[in-house]
Amino acid sequence: MAEREPETSESPDVQTVRQLVRLMHRFDLSAIDLTNERTTIRLRRWRATAGAAPAAPAPQATVPSPTPAAAPPPPAPARPAVEPVYIRSPMVGTFYESPAPDASPYVTVGSVVRPDTTVCLIEAMKVFTEINAGVTGTIAEVLVKSGQAVEFDQPLFRVEPS
């Protein structure tokens, strides 16, 4: 999923698209049009019945565009690809499913999450960081065990978006 990839030295336009995709995801938006003097960025998010694939239709960035609204939205794929949505680890650390060892997990399979729902803790250098879902949907699979070390960007949960 494009919006969780590390931000490397990429063009400002790609970074902008990345940020917009993240916003769409976070606030569950289906369309964003961003126009300034030289650039128009149009993003559309298509839903599939079995699960949305927010980044599937290639976000279109036209530089420059003389007629801002000219570019038509990309056609919907005939059969939208069902791309799994993951909540990924933003850092290297140790994964914990619950706030304390004797407490129940933040989420389990079937839990409904919103973007600001805390789904787990990642501990690194004795700093415990709450990780938010960043998406709206239902937890379909927990991919790591409590206490397990995780890598940067490693998928932690598979989410059935809604």
Binding site: T118, T129, E130
Partner: peptide, 9 residues
């Protein structure tokens, strides 16, 4: 003699 625990939400 001491422990430190940081939590970030």
């Amino acid at each position: 003699v001491a422990g430190v625990l940081v939590e970030r939400g």
